[in-house]
Simulated assay, not measured.
Amino acid sequence: MTDAPHYNPDPHAHPGLHVIAIFEAAKGVLALFAASGLELLGPAPLLRWVNELTQRFQLDPNQGALGWLSNTINPDSVHLAAAVVFAYGILRLVEAWGLWRAKAWASWLGCISAAIYLPLDIYALFRHPGWMSVGVLLINLIVVAVLARDLVKRRH
């Protein structure tokens, strides 16, 4: 009787990789749902939502971000947005698979992609102080620290 092949993780890999992998997989699945929703719904609900916001807050529909959005939303821009969100979802799922399998490239990808958000998280903390901003910053710092530690452990 042969044994089924089983997973043999890198003994130097950080034990927190599986937690981060689950988090990244959830982000990837949500992104795929969002991309699907954009494709299925099309531009009409988005335009309606922007118009409702403009009316609710009594904004000039030709000025600011909402004015820009209402002029930018069209079938082509929705397809482009859906494609970008779909690619992001696939990237998160590939990263999650790599982290689950304790691949060094996935730790690099995760560490770099989480670190990119740190300046934005710090800006958000100063611009909108509160528990949400602190929580997001702490989570990203923990992810960067765990993945960086994993990469350092692999080098030694």
Rank of each mutant, 00 (worst) to 15 (best):
G110C: 08
N51I: 00
K153L: 15
V94F: 04
P11H: 03
A148H: 08
I116C: 00
H79V: 06
K27R: 15
W97M: 10
R48L: 09
W68F: 12
F33G: 06
H18Q: 12
W100E: 09
L120A: 12
N62D: 13
F33C: 14
L141I: 01
P119M: 04
G130F: 07
L99N: 00
T2I: 13
L46H: 02
T54K: 05
F33S: 08
N51H: 01
L109G: 02
P129L: 00
W49K: 04
S70G: 09
I22V: 15
V152S: 10
I22S: 11
D10M: 09
A13R: 04
M132A: 12
K27V: 03
E95H: 02
A145H: 04
A44P: 03
A34K: 03
V136W: 12
V144F: 08
L109I: 06
V85G: 00
F126V: 09
D3Q: 14
A124E: 09
K103W: 05
I116M: 02
P45C: 05
D3K: 13
M1Y: 08
I90K: 00
L137M: 13
G110P: 05
P9M: 09
L32S: 03
N8S: 15
S70T: 12
W131R: 13
V134P: 00
V50A: 05
G67E: 02
Y123R: 06
H18G: 14
P9F: 05
V85C: 00
G110E: 07
V136L: 15
L59N: 05
S77E: 05
A114C: 10
A106H: 00
I122Y: 09
W97C: 09
A115V: 10
A31V: 06
L46I: 11
L30E: 11
L147Y: 02
R101C: 07
R101W: 04
S113N: 11
A106M: 02
V152K: 15
L38F: 07
S77R: 10
A83L: 11
N140V: 06
